[in-house]
């Protein structure tokens, strides 16, 4: 197992007025390539902060983050941006689509930002493929406000996947969706892990969503309270996780 994402004694402290809040208190973990991991925990536990640090969106107060095999804490802002662009994809609770761009243009945004022409044959084919894969064919020319919430989140997912990043970070991707739409998004995340061998790092407070993961880290008070190994989703449902959480009194 090759480590693709990792944390070493990761800590993050925020200033809140005159006081300090310790969001993370020395987290250490390893995620292997092609793995699906989930961070669970109550609100304010530090799970989103952990995802942001692992994805290079934020910088730790101390400790080290490993992304695609390299320590990123000392990278310059530009180098970190380039690494993020080439190796990661992000999905957030709010769909964060650009309202003035069409679906195809939103999905092709990472190409555009990377200085590649989204309309070149190769990239256009990649965009078409990911849209088809996420069942969005026919919506290419729609604007985000012409789509349902589930469709918008699938467009956001397509954007995260289009460059075939090594790691996809998903922060509460179902938090704003109904059950059916949420399940569709989770299924697509899971399929991208299995079929495209992409590493998925998911943050959720929903046990049913976390149950798609191979491993679940339960985060509380800025620490990893429990690591629950579930194995591939094809071999289990949500029940083992729910049982284990119940055993732990969570």
């Amino acid at each position: 197992m090759v480590e693709i994402v990792g944390a070493r004694e990761l800590a993050k402290t925020y200033r809140l007025g005159n006081s300090e809040v310790q969001a993370l208190r020395g987290v250490t973990l390893e995620v292997a390539g092609g793995e699906f991991v989930a961070f669970m925990g109550p609100s304010g536990s530090g799970k989103s902060t952990l995802l942001h640090l692992l994805g290079g969106l934020d910088r730790p107060s101390s400790g080290e983050v490993i992304l695609d095999g390299q320590a990123i804490s000392h990278l310059s802002d530009d180098d970190l941006t380039r690494l993020r662009r080439d190796k990661t994809g992000f999905v957030f609770q709010f769909f964060n689509l650009i309202p003035t761009l069409t679906v195809a243009e939103n999905v092709g945004l990472p190409f555009l930002v990377a200085g590649r022409d989204p309309r070149s044959a190769e990239n256009a084919a990649e965009i078409a493929a990911v849209l088809e894969w996420l069942e969005l064919t026919g919506k290419e020319r729609h604007r985000p406000d012409e789509l349902s919430g589930g469709e918008q989140q699938r467009v956001a997912l397509a954007r995260a996947l289009v460059m075939r990043p090594a790691v996809v970070f998903a922060d509460e991707p179902t938090g704003n969706l109904d059950f059916t739409s949420g399940t569709e998004v989770l299924e697509h995340l899971f399929r991208s892990c299995v079929q495209r061998e992409q590493t998925i790092v998911l943050v959720t407070h929903d046990a049913k969503a976390a149950a798609y993961a191979d491993r679940v880290f339960f985060v509380q008070d800025g620490r990893i309270l429990e690591e629950i190994v579930l194995g591939r989703r094809e071999e289990h449902g949500a029940k083992p996780l729910i049982d284990r959480l119940a055993q732990l009194g969570l």
Binding site: L57, D78, R85, D86, N96, I98, A114, R159
Partner: peptide, 16 residues
């Protein structure tokens, strides 16, 4: 702000 955030997350530099 959110769009700018997503552009940054997607790989746009501050200068960009």
């Amino acid at each position: 702000v959110r769009e700018i955030g997503i552009l940054r997350a997607t790989g746009m530099t501050r200068r960009g």
